[in-house]
Amino acid sequence: MPLYESPAVVLRSMKLGDTDKIITFFTLYYGKLKAVAKGTTKPKSRFAGRVEPFVYCNMIAFGKEKADLLRLNSCDIIEPFGLVRGDFEKLKHAFVSAELVDICQKERDTNMEGFELLLAMWRRLSVEGDARKQDLLLRLFELKYMSTIGFHPFLKSCVDCGGDIIGPKAGFNAIKGGVVCHKCITSDPAASRVFVGSVKLMGKSLEMPFEKLDRLKADPGLQGDIDKIVAGFVKYHIRRNMRSERFLAL
């Protein structure tokens, strides 16, 4: 029976029967994996705190090659992300990032870049105290993560005519996956009007490593734009509403 050993983050856990849990891991080497952790809800369980969402650990599981559900053998914490779990604002952002990865990531489909990105997001979230900055980081994370799975937004020139993006206002068309220039926006009813500054900021973020994104600043106008653009872009590609999204307003 194959053994699966990999650094992993816990995306979610779900109760199974009285004391067991199904843990969804996003692993570095195998992509998303699900494993049963036996006896997790018992007070003396060796797994208890180790398989809580937002824990970065080293997991070992076993199971048949094509099994949907593995059996968790051990789980050693590398980073507990206690600061994320201990703050309601941070927790909301962590939930949204975990849900996006859980929805988009296919089981046993490796995405090392996405894995590192999620870790970087939670590390940044641990130390970021400003709620507005957390909002911006989350949206830029979503944008960058979508890019790792093949949905890279086209922000350099107009998706309709290929022309340069100039002027204070432009458009964004989630269906076409990119920015629309001030000339084409009138003939593109699906494009929402946005500031060019928002498009530039998003474009810059896609070229920067996540660790350096805290250098980017967005005023409330740009932040609103980025919220709208990213939410529309993500929703169009995942074809559903994210459940955790409404918690950001709590």
Partner: peptide, 14 residues
């Protein structure tokens, strides 16, 4: 009745 040695980091920090 638990053992400190086997406690996970999350529980121990709490």
């Amino acid at each position: 009745g638990g053992d400190l040695e086997y406690a996970d980091e999350v529980t121990l920090s709490k």
